[in-house]
C-alpha cells in the first residue's frame, strides 16, 4: 500500500482577522485517504480549531465543497495521492462570505435556491444504470442536486454579479419546469427570463465541470433558453399563450 507524507496548505480565517492566511500541515496519506479525511486527521492530531463542513463522506450530502489545488471539489471523493502533487492547497469555495477557515455561509445560496420551491424527491425518472422491471416505469428517488454550491463557486459571473440567480438555482428552476406536478410554470419561466436569469450566463460551463452530481447546470441553463425561445416564437405566431 502506497503511503506518503503530504503537505497541506490550508487557507485559515477566524472572525475578526483582517484577511485570510495560509497554514501548512504535514500528514500521512495512503491510497484511500481522501482530502476530507486528511483534513479531519489534521484537526484531530494537529489543530483542533480547523473549521470545515462534512457529513455523509460519499458525495450525497454536498457539505464538504472546497477548492482543492484551485479546483471545485467535494473533499470526500478526492483521493489525496491521486492528485499527484506533494503539496495540496485547500481553500474555501468562492463567491460566498467566509465564516471561518474552509466554511462559507450558505444562506445566500439557499435564499436564491429556495425561491424555486423544487420538491426534494423526483416523482419519476428513467435511469439507465439498471434494467427496469415490467410495470416499473421509473424509480422514485432524490433529486440529483446536493446543494453543494460548487457550481456557484466555479461560476465566473457569480463573483462579479451578486444579483445573478446562478447555476444551481437556474438548474432547479429547469427541473420544476420539466416536472411541474401541477405547478404553473409561467411564473418560473418569467422569473428566469431576465437579465439576472438564464440570459446572464456567459456559457463558460465551469458549473458543468464543478458539478459532482450530474446536474450539469450549464446544460439546464441552455435548456431554459430553448424553452423561452420556443415560448417566444409560439407567442409571435399566435399559437401559444398558455406558457
Amino acid at each position: 500500500m502506497a503511503e506518503q507524507i503530504i503537505e497541506f496548505k490550508v487557507q485559515r480565517y477566524k472572525q475578526g482577522q483582517p484577511a485570510p492566511t495560509y497554514q501548512t500541515f504535514k500528514t500521512l496519506c495512503d491510497d484511500n485517504t481522501t482530502v476530507l479525511v486528511a483534513l479531519q486527521d489534521i484537526r484531530r492530531d494537529q489543530d483542533g480549531s480547523l473549521v470545515l463542513r462534512h457529513s455523509c463522506h460519499h458525495a450525497s450530502c454536498g457539505t464538504c465543497g472546497m477548492r482543492v489545488n484551485g479546483k471545485e471539489e467535494l473533499g470526500c471523493v478526492v483521493k489525496v495521492l491521486d492528485l499527484g502533487t506533494s503539496t495540496v492547497t485547500v481553500e474555501p469555495m468562492r463567491n460566498m462570505p467566509i465564516i471561518s477557515d474552509l466554511v462559507v455561509n450558505m444562506e445566500p445560496f439557499y435564499d436564491r435556491y429556495n425561491a424555486v420551491g423544487m420538491p426534494y424527491v423526483r416523482q419519476s425518472e428513467y435511469l439507465d444504470e439498471a434494467d427496469l422491471a415490467e410495470g416499473l416505469e421509473a424509480y422514485q428517488r432524490y433529486e440529483n442536486c446536493i446543494e453543494c454550491n460548487l457550481c456557484v463557486s466555479g461560476c465566473p459571473i457569480m463573483g462579479s454579479d451578486e444579483l445573478y440567480l446562478g447555476p444551481a438555482t437556474l438548474a432547479a428552476a429547469r427541473r420544476v419546469i420539466e416536472e411541474p406536478r401541477g405547478v404553473p410554470t409561467k411564473p418560473l419561466l418569467d422569473w428566469v427570463d431576465s437579465e439576472n436569469g438564464c440570459w446572464r450566463c456567459h456559457v463558460a460551463y465551469e458549473c458543468n465541470t464543478a458539478c459532482p452530481s450530474e446536474v450539469y447546470p450549464g446544460d439546464q441553463i441552455m435548456a431554459l433558453r430553448r424553452d423561452l425561445t420556443k415560448r417566444k416564437f409560439r407567442g409571435l405566431f399566435g399559437r401559444g399563450g398558455k406558457g
Binding site: 470545515l52 463542513r53 462534512h54 457529513s55 455523509c56 463522506h57 450525497s60 457539505t63
Partner: peptide, 14 residues
Amino acid sequence: RGEVTSGTTGRHHG
C-alpha cells in the same frame, strides 16, 4: 463542535 450532522448521523447508509 463541527457542522450539524458531522458525526455519525450523516454517515450512515441511509
